[in-house]
Amino acid sequence: MSRQAATILDRLHALGEQPAGWSEAEFAEELLKVRARRLAAPRGLADRVAAGFDVLGARIANERYALSLDSLSEVMVLARWTPVPGQPQYLLGVTNLRGEIRPVLDLHSLLGLTPPAPEARTWVIFLKAGGAEVGVRVDALDRVVRLDPAGLTRPHEAGNGLPQRFISGIAPDALILLDTAQLLALDALKDTRVEDPDES
């Protein structure tokens, strides 16, 4: 007991005696070193990558997914949403995007994944769909990466039995590229009202 307490006390004393152990200067220096390393990376990699297209990586229930940057409209924090009655489970609800009501899809339900914790912080990625945007909920946002279409495995072409509808391809580093067109073609996003068929 006393030995452990003494050790703790010694350590506390040591901390008190060395206040410059994790100084701001060291932190900045470490940060600058990282950045220098990145900038010192070979430039050819960027040229080779430029042959593909940009995707925005996202994490859904510990799985890494990607969405084509061209089909995206905006990202934001999903602060709050309102469930819509009478809709399938994969339609999470609607949210307010700068004064406009936008539907939000629940990809966890759609892809059969474990739903996030209720209080967890989530983000929404809005897809371009004509005049309107359709949001999809993700657990976290990754960075924008560039994918080579030749390196993608296409499940609907290979026919290896994976769920194919929402996946347009899988990158070598197991990044799953979602098919936004298929997502936007979901029934819940279509207006089936008889009186006013022109509005969608």
Binding site: D54, L56, L69, D70, S73, V75, M76, V77, W123, V144
Partner: peptide
């Protein structure tokens, strides 16, 4: 940092457009 990230991502999206 989060907000900056979002801003950066939206900027990337806009740049892609």
């Amino acid at each position: 940092a989060e907000q900056s990230n979002l801003v950066a991502l939206n900027a990337a999206i806009e740049a892609a457009d």
